[in-house]
Design a protein around this nucleic acid. Structure first.
Lengths: 213, 213, 213, 213
DNA sequence: CATGAATGAGTTTTCATTCAT
DNA sequence: GATGAATGAAAACTCATTCAT
């Protein structure tokens, strides 16, 4: 009856938001329109200020149509979580020793990407912050964000372990704790008030230096 | 007419929440009851879930009475901001070279205090997170939180400058960037999902080590 | 355009629900599926809780298809009325003196049938109750139910007149009033709360005895 | 918070609808206004057609005020049930042998009262019918109506037992079954279509005669 | 100062119905 | 005939705020 019962939004990457494959593209497009509108509204007004009516209007459709795709506001927010998760998690290649790049380079690139996103599309991080706060009270989105967090953490740990093994990073680094430091830093960076872009970049750069052997 | 028009809540410290000075102590107590109730409700339900009616109920008073003390919900939230600001910012002594403690010790104590608070009273940080997200859209609370942030930053910078001068911290540390790192880290630590207490403490400890010369 | 505009559902009897005559039998089957689904839903949720969407789902078809067969919800309800009327009114043979059974036997059989139905398929009576209440406000179904009622009444009166004439029933019985008593009793029996089956049967039996000369 | 949590409507009798005692009369009046409006709307449009907005309008108040007194539509309907129960159940004196009236007279008076009500205020019975049908699906109102039914049944049984003992009623009458007959009859009488007043009275009169020894 | 009834605009959600494919 | 996405009016309910007592 409702479109949101067993259907997931197909893969969305930052690079190709418009690309959809398969037959039911129209239906998925509609869902995406809604999610994107909701995302933007959360970005500008917070979850607190999210109104289904506004979402429908911004998505250019009737409020009834929105509810045809998402049976409740809760579900819609979950849709936004799915969307965010796809956008914020850069698809990482598994770290391999035969990689052309050293793990230091890979980590650097990862942090640079995050920094760049934080500067260019702070909305994503703002919305992520909203959702992370919300997630303690929302049973539905907690596991999704937890999973994302865990994946991110593991990715960082793998990079750090490899970098330490290779002698690039300080030998006394605990990979898990360092991963935590990085993750907390980026989550909190969104909450820094009036921080200029360059300062953010420099801060990340300095932090990277602290990790080196 | 309303109690919140030109009057500031007197200083509240964690240690002496009941102490009020000056006249109309009862009135201030009432205000404080309300603010505390609002704080707790934000902690558990977010600003999104804050209802003036619930606040009044939790504060053990009539909704009408609440509106006698706070003319609008907005004002009430500002009251919570004031409350938070008092609680999160430990009143720091200016760092002096003749201090008994070295600045390394003072910074350590500062970070240990924050870590302890984060573990014992995570609500404060959660509410702070809510308010920091909100403050970009709320002209009234932005300056307050900005001021607090700036004070905190300056405090950290002073400590770091002194520590570097004394040769305890790495000479290549940029105090401002390091302050940013610390601040972002603590703001983001609230948003870490399922992080055990010891891991948080160890993470802070490792970070401190990275700063040492 | 719509199937319900000028076409009546062909006679449906309890015994041969699937039998349809004439052309477009498949079409009638579809209509019947819908009516049956609607009937069942009214039985369990009342007219108040009847949703066209649920009817379509239960009938195993698309909501659009339902509206192909019944242009409005009103028409659908009328379809249910027709269905009920067929089911509740057992087609009675005209009472004749040359009948093998005495009219006392026929009345007894009639009451026994009703009692049996009331016990085995109370839904029919519940739905009938719903519709009887509704029909005062619904111009479309009133005449149908009134006609059914009038037929039933006349059937009872004929039986009673004959039974009195034959000396089986009390001579002071007014047939019309007695018919009313019987009809009211059965309509109200549905509204009795927590009445055991045997008690219902005994009640009817006692009532029959009261009628005897 | 809501007025409907633990408060019952004070005694209402058909005779003195305006009489209220005690201090919070205004509040109770308001509740009564609402319940009465709801009752009237159910009488004319059925539970199916009941709209909280219409109730508020008819009660001459804001929709918000209605919800101040009744937290949900369900609760409001329960309020109507309470109201109905008070109105339909004539406060019966316990049947005593030393009573001036014989039990035959008392039963006669009871049936006459019911008949009179059915003629003068059929709405009450119509609404009662609505609620009795609803009550199978509504856990909240079932016990209330069941209790009322049980009380009514017991009252009838007591009268019948006494009447039989005194030799007024047929000795072969089973009091419980006879009570059932009476109750079903009156419940069903509401569902009789186009029955003239006199015919109803005569029907009841004839039924009474059937009971006599 | 305190109470709590009252307000009304706003919010989420529902549902009969339509229509292009 | 069948589908299901789309519509929009209307429904139940919420909640910050006011005000007479």
């Amino acid at each position: 009856m409702y479109q949101d019962d067993n259907i997931y939004i197909p893969h969305m990457n930052v690079e190709n938001l418009q690309v959809t494959t398969g037959v039911s593209a129209g239906s998925d497009d509609r869902r995406q329109d809604i999610v994107l509108a909701a995302f933007q509204l959360i970005a500008s007004k917070g979850v607190e200020g999210l109104r289904t009516r506004d979402v429908a209007a911004r998505a250019g459709m009737n409020i009834g149509t929105l509810y045809y795709y998402f049976s409740t506001k809760e579900r819609l927010i979950q849709g936004v979580v799915d969307y965010i998760v796809q956008h914020i998690v850069v698809v990482q290649e598994p770290v391999s020793t035969v990689s052309v790049n050293t793990s230091v380079d890979v980590l650097h690139q990862h942090l640079a990407n995050l920094t760049h996103k934080l500067i260019m599309t702070p909305e994503i991080f703002r919305v992520m912050g909203e959702l992370l706060l919300r997630c303690e009270r929302d049973q539905a989105i907690y596991p999704i964000l937890k999973k994302t967090d865990d994946d991110w953490k593991q990715y960082l740990i793998d990079l750090l372990v490899e970098g330490i093994r290779q002698g690039y990073f300080r030998a006394d680094l605990n990979p898990a704790l360092t991963a935590h430091t990085i993750m907390s830093f980026f989550k909190g960076a969104t909450l820094q008030l009036g921080m200029p872009h360059e300062e953010l970049e420099q801060t990340v750069a300095q932090f990277e230096r602290l990790l080196l052997a």
